[in-house]
């Protein structure tokens, strides 16, 4: 078991304004699986991803990654855990604005014990010709590719994607999804992708539907489609 969530609860606000964002979430993910967390806005899917990524803390419950419980970790081992095991892709890319494409990816490589080859990754992502540009000189799709490069160069066990195509057009979205699919197959990273786009569930091995902080449905997708076949 790569990742296991047990009884995860999370709420925001005080007393009367208290909102339960996650109500008792249980989930297990196998190594190399492509998981899609599907839900409308406000369903708690991004919060759940942030908790897995260690950006946010759960109020209660356990997150067990490769047999280790995250709640037992102090700040330092949490930093190490993120450094060694996690890649994260954001909706708004969050690249470092003063570094070039290559340097952004190098930051990821620098932090990893066994990074992948930067040139190879830039080749796969189609970034070789843009490697000396800074983020503001790139299109949204190119920035997202760079963000994918920065995340996967670490060769993370788990790649977390928060609405990675949320700010992109149809064609570019499909390109990005294909790339994430390719990464998943080529490097065997577990992928957990949050989205509100229903069509994306078809490319997953495992689909989890969230609404109002509860898992409404979760199932193994037997009729897995390629990203390029998706349509919405």
């Amino acid at each position: 078991m790569q990742l296991e969530l047990q009884n995860i609860k999370k709420s925001y606000g005080e007393s009367d304004n208290r909102i339960e964002v996650l109500k008792d979430i249980n989930l297990s993910v196998e190594k190399g699986e492509f998981v899609v967390l599907l839900g409308p806005s406000g369903s708690g899917k991004s919060t759940l991803l942030n908790i897995i990524g260690g950006i946010d803390n759960a109020d209660s419950g356990k997150i067990i990654i490769r047999g280790k419980s995250m709640s037992d970790m102090d700040d330092k081992s949490l930093t190490n855990y993120r450094r060694e095991h996690l890649g994260y892709i954001f909706q708004m890319y969050n690249l470092i604005p003063n570094l070039t494409v290559r340097e952004n990816i190098e930051v990821g490589a620098y932090l990893s014990k066994n990074p992948l080859d930067i040139d190879e990754i830039m080749g796969v992502l189609g970034l070789a010709e843009h490697q000396n540009k800074i983020p503001s000189q790139l299109s949204g799709g190119q920035q997202q590719r760079c963000a994918i490069g920065r995340a996967i160069v670490k060769n993370p066990d788990i790649l977390l994607c928060d609405e990675p195509t949320g700010a992109l057009d149809y064609k570019t979205s499909k390109e990005i999804l294909s790339l994430i699919e390719e990464v998943n197959q080529k490097y065997g990273n577990t992928v957990i992708m949050v989205t509100h786009n229903d069509a994306i569930k078809n490319m997953a091995d495992f689909v989890v539907k969230l609404r109002d902080g509860v898992i409404r449905k979760s199932y193994r997708n037997e009729a897995k489609q390629k990203a390029e076949e998706l349509d919405w």
Binding site: N50, G53, G54, I55, D75, K76, T79, N80, R82, R83, E84, L86, G87, Y88, F90, M92, N94, L95, I96, V107, G108, L111, R150, K154, L160
Partner: peptide, 15 residues
């Protein structure tokens, strides 16, 4: 500075 910059740094594994 957008919160995302802090988050990105954190998930990269920077202290």
């Amino acid at each position: 500075i957008p919160k995302g910059q802090h988050e990105a740094a954190a998930v990269l594994g920077l202290t």
